[in-house]
Simulated assay, not measured.
Amino acid sequence: MDFASILGILSGLALIVSAIYLGGDFHIFINVPGLMIVVGGTIAATLLTFQFKDVLAAFKSAFIVFAQDRTKPQQMIHTMLELSKVSHRNGLLALANVETTSKFLKRACNLLADAASEDFIRQTLQTEIDSLIARHFTVQDIFKKMASYAPAFGMLGTLIGLVQMLSQLDNPDTIGPAMAVALLTTFYGSLMSTMFFLPIAGKLRARTLLEVQNLEIIREGAISILSNDNYLNVYERLSSYIPEAQRQPVNLGKGG
């Protein structure tokens, strides 16, 4: 569970709701037609822009980002060092028996066990990384587009409310409430954009960068194992992917 994201959403909503509650009647900020315009319009525009399966995949990815813990690069370096020890003790063929939940790591192990060439391993794994970046870009773009659609439909709802208000200028008592309702759609659009869609897109981008970093560690680790580098050389090669302050000292005794 990504507690930072959950904490950010809950604290942000709590502050906004508290400010509304302390400032007056909370019920005046509830307008069903305005929500229909903003939410319905944003969903409709998104479905017009992207394929339905891509939109579903985007929301699924967002849920995964919030629900699953991330794998730290230091942990991935440790994994590749363990595989290096396995290959030195039992040979490359033993890597075919490695069990892991990472399909990318499993493929790298299979390529090593099959004695593929360095160029083939590098190109194959790089293609996988490029494909992942392209898929994740689509997911991020969906939420970025939704972040731009929501305020636009909020403004559209405001214009609709203003037209309805201006049509009743002969009744001054209705102008104030009608103006408040008209402005609520802009509020809804801005809230959805800045509180949900843009942060989710940013979180997805950060998670993509982290995942790509882990995949690159696997790729370079596989190349090092294929080259029969010793334990320390593998560590030095992979540790360059993380800041020096986060690097953990290598235990040469375990490395053989």
Rank of each mutant, 00 (worst) to 15 (best):
D2W: 05
A4P: 00
A4R: 13
I6R: 03
L10Q: 03
G12K: 07
A14D: 00
I16F: 09
I16Q: 03
V17L: 14
A19R: 08
L22S: 10
G23P: 02
G23W: 02
H27G: 12
F29I: 12
F29E: 14
N31G: 07
V32I: 15
G34P: 02
L35W: 03
L35D: 04
V38H: 02
V38F: 03
V39W: 07
G41A: 06
T42H: 06
I43E: 01
A44H: 09
L48P: 00
T49V: 10
T49N: 11
T49H: 11
K53C: 00
K53Y: 02
K53T: 07
V55N: 05
A57V: 01
S61F: 09
F66T: 08
T71S: 06
Q74E: 14
Q75S: 09
M76I: 11
M76G: 07
H78G: 13
H78D: 15
M80Y: 04
S87D: 05
H88K: 14
H88I: 01
N90P: 00
A94F: 08
L95Y: 07
A96E: 15
A96R: 13
N97S: 15
T100V: 08
T101N: 12
T101C: 00
F104W: 04
F104Y: 13
K106T: 14
R107M: 14
A108T: 07
D114A: 15
A116W: 03
A116L: 10
S117L: 01
S117R: 01
E118R: 06
F120A: 12
I121E: 07
I121C: 07
R122H: 11
R122E: 13
Q123H: 12
T124H: 10
Q126N: 14
T127I: 06
L132T: 12
I133A: 05
A134N: 13
A134H: 11
H136K: 12
F137Q: 14
T138V: 15
V139Y: 01
K144A: 07
K144P: 00
A150Y: 02
P151N: 11
A152W: 08
F153G: 08
G157W: 05
L162R: 10
V163T: 13
Q164N: 15
Q164L: 13
Q164W: 05
M165E: 07
M165Y: 02
M165Q: 06
L166I: 08
L169V: 05
L169A: 03
D170H: 11
N171L: 12
P172M: 07
P172Y: 05
D173G: 09
D173K: 12
T174W: 02
P177H: 06
A182S: 10
L183C: 08
T185P: 08
T185M: 08
T185G: 04
T186E: 06
F187P: 02
G189N: 02
S190Q: 05
M192A: 11
M192P: 00
S193H: 02
T194C: 04
F196C: 09
P199V: 03
I200A: 03
G202N: 15
T208Y: 02
T208H: 05
L210E: 11
L215G: 02
E216W: 00
E216A: 01
I217S: 01
E220K: 10
S224P: 01
N228F: 10
N228S: 14
Y231M: 03
L232K: 06
L232D: 06
V234S: 04
Y235C: 12
Y235P: 11
Y241L: 02
R247W: 06
P249L: 12
V250K: 04
V250Q: 05
L252A: 06
G255R: 04
